Simulated assay, not measured.
Amino acid sequence: MNDRSAAGARLPSEDAVEAAILAVAGRPDALRTITPEEVARSLAQGPDWQSLLPLVRRCAIRLAEAERLVIYRKGKPVDPADFRGVYRLGLPPQG
C-alpha cells in the first residue's frame, strides 16, 4: 500500500496493520477487548497515529469477516459490514 498521511508519512501495509491488531489483542496484559487507538498508537509515534484509524478499521473489518477478530459495540458483537460509532476489538472466544 502506498498511501500517505496528511503529513506525507508512509502508512504501514494492511498486512502489518492486521498483524498489529492481532498482536495487541493477544497481549497477555490486554483486557478482553482493545481500542482501535491502541493499535494505531502501536504503529505510529506522536500525533500521526490518528491518521491510521481508517486503515485500522478497514483491517479490523477484514479480520472480522475472516472470523479472526470480533468487533464489539456497546459490549456486543456486531456485523463487521454494518456498524457505526465507537467500537472495540477482541479475539474470538476459544473453543
Rank of each mutant, 00 (worst) to 15 (best):
L69N: 03
V86R: 14
A25Q: 06
D79W: 04
A64F: 00
E18M: 10
A6K: 13
G46A: 09
A9G: 08
P54Y: 02
A64K: 03
A16K: 14
R84V: 04
A19R: 09
I71P: 01
A44Q: 14
V70T: 11
P12C: 12
T35H: 06
K74F: 11
V17H: 04
R4D: 02
W49A: 09
A7M: 06
E37C: 08
L22I: 01
V78G: 00
I71H: 03
S42T: 06
A66D: 08
R68C: 03
S42Y: 06
D82F: 04
L31G: 15
W49R: 12
A9H: 09
R73G: 04
K76D: 09
P77K: 08
R10M: 14
W49Q: 10
D15A: 15
R4M: 11
P77A: 11
P28W: 10
E14L: 01
I71M: 01
A25R: 04
L55P: 00
R32S: 12
T33S: 15
F83D: 01
P12Y: 13
V86E: 11
L22A: 00
A44N: 11
D82L: 08
A40Q: 03
G26P: 12
G26V: 10
K74M: 04
D29Y: 14
K74T: 10
R73C: 11
Y87E: 02
S13I: 08
E14K: 08
P36E: 04
G26L: 10
V86T: 10
I21C: 05
